[in-house]
Design a protein around this nucleic acid. Sequence first.
DNA 1: GATGAATGAGATTTCATTCAT
DNA 2: GATGAATGAAATCTCATTCAT
Lengths: 185, 185, 185, 185
Amino acid sequence: MSDKKSKAIEAATKLFAELGFEKTSMTAICKEANVSKGLVYHHFKSKESILIEIFASSTKKMLELSLIQDSSLEPQEELNELINNIFHQLDNNKLFFQLNLNLMFQPSTNALLKEKILKRADILFNSVKRIFDKVELEKSEILAYTFIAEIDGIALNYLSVFENYPLAKMKEEMINKYSSITNKK
Amino acid sequence: MSDKKSKAIEAATKLFAELGFEKTSMTAICKEANVSKGLVYHHFKSKESILIEIFASSTKKMLELSLIQDSSLEPQEELNELINNIFHQLDNNKLFFQLNLNLMFQPSTNALLKEKILKRADILFNSVKRIFDKVELEKSEILAYTFIAEIDGIALNYLSVFENYPLAKMKEEMINKYSSITNKK
Amino acid sequence: MSDKKSKAIEAATKLFAELGFEKTSMTAICKEANVSKGLVYHHFKSKESILIEIFASSTKKMLELSLIQDSSLEPQEELNELINNIFHQLDNNKLFFQLNLNLMFQPSTNALLKEKILKRADILFNSVKRIFDKVELEKSEILAYTFIAEIDGIALNYLSVFENYPLAKMKEEMINKYSSITNKK
Amino acid sequence: MSDKKSKAIEAATKLFAELGFEKTSMTAICKEANVSKGLVYHHFKSKESILIEIFASSTKKMLELSLIQDSSLEPQEELNELINNIFHQLDNNKLFFQLNLNLMFQPSTNALLKEKILKRADILFNSVKRIFDKVELEKSEILAYTFIAEIDGIALNYLSVFENYPLAKMKEEMINKYSSITNKK
DNA sequence: GATGAATGAGATTTCATTCAT
DNA sequence: GATGAATGAAATCTCATTCAT
């Protein structure tokens, strides 16, 4: 990928996260990236297509983060690592979560990305469910949905609602709660 | 409040929820409400001020929904009622949740409503924490944050992420989980 | 004239002088005068007609100021009194001059008041010329035009161009210059 | 400067002079210049910024007109040339004076250009005063203010007040009056 | 006389996108 | 690949004026 194209993506990612998709103008992206409009339209068909490319790479990153490779691990350990990864990112990469959550909530962007959002959610859901499958086969679906809801809810509250959110304590609570899961199969 | 003013608010509420604040034009609001632009600007200083008025009344509604009056109830019963109320609304009034969640996430609207969002969150948090205070004084804060995160996460996933979300089962799970709380004080 | 009508005129005069005719909205006039829009339109056919009424009364005031009644006075004394009157007003009633000068210069208001401006200028010119007629019949016209230009130019420079304009010294200079006129008839 | 940008400035200058700043709409400027609105806003941040650019170039022109370069000239000759220049312009370039005078008087435009008006007035004043300095050092300031007031007053009366203003005779009068100045230093 | 809700035309401004160079 | 002038549609907002009460 050419230097200037990646600069444009970088700039767009930053601005979409900070201002939202609708409030970010092409002009602003070009200025932030120090690139001309003509060039941006040379690389991307439209503003929406920049968003789509960003969402795709953000999905890739998110899957890397969530899919625990080493399936020989015990379920508790897998969950443990997953929680650690997520909270680490949440703390160190706020804009990344910010962007992903607001793309889902903004009706216009949600509609645009509908299919891709569903697909990504499905993959994430199954990778979590697979862990719970090892423990409680019947309830694994509900457990996975609950786990994901907790994570998303914490992110939402941390990033957009409360001030001085006790993120560290919430992580501890999550770790404790999910450490008591015992392999019942 | 005059008939036409309330029609304008109604129209704006609907469109903000369906399309998002940025994507809803004044023209669209006027057309939906069958009202002239001049009138809307006679009653509201700006598009933003419509949003602020809507957020205020939505906060009022949300507090009515969340604050359990009868404090003679046992904590379990209070939580039970709260969960029932919330899931009932979530199922029957999707647009209301849709709107409130996306106002919080959209950077532009979040910035505009920052103060009011914080205040509302504080009230909601304390009304939940008060219930947990009756049970586990030390952990009540974390329990309250967790409860709120679960509710928000479920709403988010139900409304904007998954298709065929098992809302009824999630409610059941919540009811069960919080019914086992015993007054330990 | 009803109390509220005169309050409206007063408010309009103030705002036209401070903001200019175009930048003063009917709404602003009503707010300043504490009077409803309906009432203003009950008394005046339009915004322009308020201006016309204001210009008429301002013309009346200006003529009272300029027409020296006592024609038994010597020309020097008449000019003296005229200069004194004008500089006194210029110092104590800036908004009055401000308004009159900008009505003449603003193309839109000038066009609207064209006829009345010409008529007023004619009267003022003749009342000044009459004084010079007593001294130098042939040059009286040019002297009158010069006198008026000097006054208008000083007002212009004092009100809209220079900071710390030496108004007192300019008055002194005018008094001196025109005191040396001798009756040559 | 691109062709279209300068056409827009030209159109704006003409219309501001003829109709006044407030009464000139962007639409009118675009139509007059045969240019799209988008383009005008590509080159200028706002309608006000067009005015500021016009004022700047008008200042430049005015200074070229007023600053007599050849300082080896006798004061009388300098004044002579200055008066000739000004009256020539006044007669041949009415719109230019029209615009400059009404920008100063219109409260909105005066406020916008305040600083620049003061600066320009200061330069013009000093360039006139410098001439009188050669003749009468003590009174040079008042003489300069008087000279400027006469010029401005004549322009005002010629352009916006009287019909059939005797411009030629007024020039003659000015030439005569200032030809009798003798170097007294 | 008096109110202020209501209108509709038009003002300024924004912005995604195109295109000649 | 690269630029930025140029467009046109649409956005937010203003405002003189009317009218039912």
